[in-house]
């Protein structure tokens, strides 16, 4: 346990110190990584832990982003207000969509989440007067908290970093809690959990909603960071990207999605300097991981670590098998 606290404080210090020695460009990159890491972590709750593979997670990201953006433009840029708006709206959406999605599983779940996210997308696309349609929303005012405006990107970075750490810590406790253990149980063998007396649908529904709400929060943060939202942030390619992040990082682990988000964002930035064939690269990287490293970056790290310090194996670490997700 102490080890965990040490690591956590180390990360905290690193995040806090980063602006003092990194140029602004890298700080922005780091902000983006952290936002997408939150987004990936949210998907991971339902996909990595509860075993529900979704291809429509962008719906929540978009809902959060647009909710925060629209409220900031038309009502108030107060952060408590916009963040709460994003949370409430994604909560409602997850609540409704979840009701339907809980009726199906496997590929059908994948398809149904995709369908709902495309419905959200077409709504965003059509509702010109609110969302700006295909042009998106721009010129969104910076978030304000207790009279303080997060107009400087370093401040926005600190805000994102703080929320990231809170969410990461919260989710870590969640997945290790009795509740989280039940989600893992459902992923591995839902029949057994039912015969143990668990109402598995309820737990899955709860996971779906938690996942959706945190996804919505990451969307809101994205709005604070970018000041601009495009409908492509709700499109299914966004869902695909976050799915790739989770899987490349390592589903069913806490560090995996964060590493995945970091890798994909960094890769995209590097690649963009040379070619616009980004999807080609992303697809190839993903294929390589699917075939050769099914347990993701986290798995690779774990293996190397185990080779280094063979005698001291951590019994808590559960390697996640791809086919069982």
């Amino acid at each position: 346990m102490n080890n965990t606290y040490v690591k956590f404080i180390a990360v905290l210090v690193l995040i806090a110190a980063a602006p003092f020695f990194l140029p602004l460009f890298h700080i922005n990159l780091l902000s983006e990584i952290l936002i997408l890491a939150i987004f990936a972590l949210s998907l991971n709750v339902m996909m990595g832990y509860a075993g529900m593979v979704s291809l429509g997670h962008a719906a929540f990201f978009g809902t959060g982003a647009y909710a925060a953006g629209i409220m900031a433009q038309n009502a108030s840029a107060n952060m408590i207000f916009t963040l709460a708006g994003a949370v409430v709206l994604s909560l409602v959406l997850a609540g409704i969509v979840g009701l339907f999605c809980m009726k199906v599983s496997g590929f059908y779940f994948l398809m149904l989440t995709l369908a709902f996210s495309q419905m959200v997308y077409s709504f965003v696309y059509q509702a010109n007067q609110w969302t700006g349609g295909s042009n998106g929303l721009s010129g969104i005012p910076s978030p304000v908290l207790f009279g303080f405006s997060f107009s400087n990107s370093v401040w926005v970075y600190y805000l994102i970093g703080l929320i990231f750490l809170l969410i990461f810590a919260g989710l870590r406790v969640l997945v290790k809690s009795p509740f989280g253990q039940i989600l893992i149980g459902i992923r591995e063998n839902e029949t057994r959990l039912k015969s143990m007396g668990y109402n598995t649908s309820m737990y899955k529904y709860a996971a779906f909603i938690i996942s959706g709400v945190i996804g919505g929060m990451s969307g809101a943060l994205y709005t604070y960071f970018n000041g601009f939202i495009a409908p492509s942030d709700v499109y299914w390619t966004m869902s695909g990207t976050v799915l790739i992040m989770v899987l490349v990082g390592g589903a069913g682990t806490m560090t995996g999605p964060v590493l995945g988000a970091a890798l994909i964002v960094l890769l995209e930035t590097v690649v963009a300097a040379y070619t616009d064939m980004w999807m080609l690269i992303l697809g190839s990287v993903f294929i390589i991981f699917v075939i050769f490293f099914p347990s993701g970056i986290h798995g690779i790290l774990q293996d190397t670590l185990n080779k280094w310090q063979k005698p001291k194996l951590n019994p808590d670490v559960k390697s996640v098998k791809r086919e069982q997700i």
Partner: peptide, 25 residues
């Protein structure tokens, strides 16, 4: 062929990656 032993999900994901690759090609 190399993913048949890994289960259906891997195959779906593989084709998903392929879709990205072909798009740019």
């Amino acid at each position: 062929k190399s993913t048949y032993h890994l289960g259906h999900l891997s195959q779906v994901l593989l084709t998903f990656g392929l879709a990205y690759v072909f798009h740019d090609i």
